[in-house]
Design a protein around this nucleic acid. Sequence first.
RNA 1: GGCGCAGUGGCCGAGUGGCUUAGGCAAGGGCCUGCAAAGCCCUGUACACGGGUUCGAUUCCCGUCUGCGCCUCCA
Length: 475
Amino acid sequence: MGLRVYNTLTREVEDFAPQDPALVRMFVCGPTVYDYSHAGHAKTYTQFDFIARYLGRRYQVRYLQNVTDIDDKIIARAAQAGQSARELADYFQVAYDQDMSWLGNTAVTDTARALDHIAEIVSQVQRLIAAGAAYELDDGWYFDLSTFPEYGKLSGRMTVAPEDSLSRIDEHHAKRNPGDFALWKRAKPGEPSWDTDLGPGRPGWHIEDTAITEKFFGAQYDLHGGAVDLIFPHHEAEIAQMEKISGRAPLARYWMHTGLLRIDGAKMARSEGNFTTVRQLRQQWDRRTLRYAFISHHYRSSMEVTDELMDSAQASRKRIESLYRRATADGPSPDAVAQEVRAGREAFFAALDDDFDTPGALAALFSLVRSLNRHESGLGADVRDFLQEVDALFDAFDLRSVVENSAGQGIAGQSIAGDSADAHIEEQVRLRAELRAARRFAEADEIRAQLAAKGIIIEDTAGGTRWWYGTGQGG
RNA sequence: GGCGCAGUGGCCGAGUGGCUUAGGCAAGGGCCUGCAAAGCCCUGUACACGGGUUCGAUUCCCGUCUGCGCCUCCA
């Protein structure tokens, strides 16, 4: 069974087939770098990171993201801070990169800044002018929507409705149609601008994306992503620009949109001032717990990050890690167990193939976890392999530290730990075992308490005592 | 007002025209354990409301209500 994805353009789940059977070209709208990224960015970019990783199982993936490094807010903030727009954008782009790498979002293969693509942007505007789809006003060039009747096909908003009584579309001066959007903004005094054949100015917001995707992918590509709040007008405008220029449709074969992250019931957004930054989240939670929280929701759902949710995510995560810790047998598991693993693995991937149903996949995973937990011992390499395979996609479990540190005595004598600190712990664990054997429990418990104070966790099992380093504050 | 998405058990959250339970967290009871931890077993409340289609609907259709998003920058 193949991969199926929900396409916003058709409002249906469709079979996924890239233009080039071996390669997926995907583009996800990146941030405007005028401030720190927040939990909403973390959600969207983590979910697309997962999607790209999953596509990577079957295809080579070219994952392109843009960075908007010039716009009104950047200019305004820079002026406030006494910096150049460039300095401010550079600073927040670095901050964004740091936040994404903290989250473990590693799948982006190409990052493109708007200001590095002025020539491509100008070229697109010129071609729109040549096609009769752009016109000039005193403050810049605009797209003429009357030349693109399909405008609105992504959002289902096919008529620019006079009855949109609450519409806040700028009725500015001489625009031919109320929804016409800026392609190139003429330079204003004191603002940064670029000298081009269109005159001094700077790009409109929508045109940078199509200029960048055309450069990297050509006129058409496979997958375009972003959060739902970008559907209108941003993605509509991209479609209008590129399909007008190329005469080919669709711009992107599959349009995928993530649900928004809410706070107190309302959308989290920088412009709303109600946002929690990634940097703040970082103080409170382990990055894997945060990733787990995102992965445990379907990408299209909206969600809210609460302490209760995060506690739940942490507990769930640890359940997987505990199983991994238990799977210590050298070879493969016994046949009956191996069969369970195969069946569970199959169910897991079947769910993911169905429009990246991560909650469904986790359900399959936990069903397997429970059935495997019934086995006292014998869980072997196939279990470890599967959990590693899962984690290569989710990156939400702390399997590695467990491998490196679960060296307690009594577990098949395998001590992976080597340094002196670990040797000391080994010694303490051994001493405690002797005390327990002598039924001197008070002293044994004292050792356990001392180790716990250092963040070392101890478990007595039928096979002996295991120990490992806990995953730290906040889990 | 227009367009779009959604309403599932204490919380989170998939899914399905009837088949055996989604799953996780939390709660209560039990087992295991010197204790702890981990784990296992058991227990409980579901599908917003009103119609319709159907032998049968939480699952399809219509309507109502409610929430969210977009219509301005926005992941």
